[in-house]
Design a protein around this nucleic acid. Sequence first.
DNA 1: AGTGGAATCTTTACAGCGTCAAGATAGTGG
DNA 2: CCACTATCTTGACGCTGTAAAGATTCCACT
Lengths: 204, 204
Amino acid sequence: MSDQYHHGDLKNALIQAGIEILSKDGLESLSLRSVAKRVGVSHAAPYAHFADKEALIAAIAAAGYSKLYSQLATAQQRSADPLTRLWHTAFAYLQFALDEPDHFRITFSGVVKAEKSYPEYVAQAQRCYALVMGLVADCQMKGLLTGEPLELLTVSIWSSLHGFAQLVLANQLPSALLNQHSIHTIFRIHLQRILQVDPDQLDG
Amino acid sequence: MSDQYHHGDLKNALIQAGIEILSKDGLESLSLRSVAKRVGVSHAAPYAHFADKEALIAAIAAAGYSKLYSQLATAQQRSADPLTRLWHTAFAYLQFALDEPDHFRITFSGVVKAEKSYPEYVAQAQRCYALVMGLVADCQMKGLLTGEPLELLTVSIWSSLHGFAQLVLANQLPSALLNQHSIHTIFRIHLQRILQVDPDQLDG
DNA sequence: AGTGGAATCTTTACAGCGTCAAGATAGTGG
DNA sequence: CCACTATCTTGACGCTGTAAAGATTCCACT
């Protein structure tokens, strides 16, 4: 089964191999050839499934958004209070960035230029955005969060989460801060400001 | 003078050429060889001034931070009220990202891994951070901005700015939003939320 | 069941890349 | 004036993305 000329599910195997390389060896080790070698296939085999390297990266980025969605969805279930759910979701967002920095980076590297569209990536991105917007909407309805319209409030909060994660991954947090506090502590205070909430009165 | 064997200021010429390539042809066109060719020098000449490609990128990133500092410093001068100055500075930050997206990206690509340090990059980064922190401190002192300690408040605000710029560059703002509003309008509302300020009552 | 075409994968080839080693050139201190 | 060092060139290596041509297998249609 595995030594066949036809692999069976090479496309997904290549995507998975790419994700593993990102996790194990980092972004600069991700090449079409390294991915093909890891799957045990010739270096030009990926071209049967991806137009070029950018197309593979788009697929890996889509998978990144998909995994991010899972993590956010799981975190979100851990409470009934909307604001608490948003709180946990935000931490899950940061955690994903910390756990898989290069997968996170590639997911938000801006694969979708104006020219090519990559519908799968766009779909996964929208699904993720919808999840966060749903949470924000719940908070908004219960008066736990002020601001309008909903889309702009969502973008504002997302920006604040995302920027923190990016700055951490880019090593831009002043080392003086990191000596005094853990990243999670700093993020907690950041969230507290952004969501205008006292973490002690959350219910989870 | 320009056809000499010894260039005179090759190091800075290479950095400048790299910045121009980023601006004109984009990140994927930036290579040691393309930079060398643009300066009119052999493909291995850069190795007299940079240990490897990463070192050149670090220098370009440092120059990015330096230019960002200039733009922020200029914007900051345009008012007396601290909060208004912070407001304009934030817009200058976004504007730099929009004007030179790939230079901005490479500046925040996380060049400084734990191994190598690149002191020039770190210095420029700290200078920029200090400028923003100074502004935030002024606002804090006049009671225009609440939160403590100063360093955490600064990181929080910076994160929110940075995240917005990153999401815009990564094409992650929902297209529905971009159809209704300009990026500047969306950013204005974002800032309004983040700084808890009414833009109509700013004095500049 | 057999066959033609399409999909998948391999092989070969090429230009461009980062990097290194060896040599050429030019400024500089003794 | 001469050695020394910094700077730059040339040539080579293995890696990369990508294209073309050929091999292999699967599938649809008769």
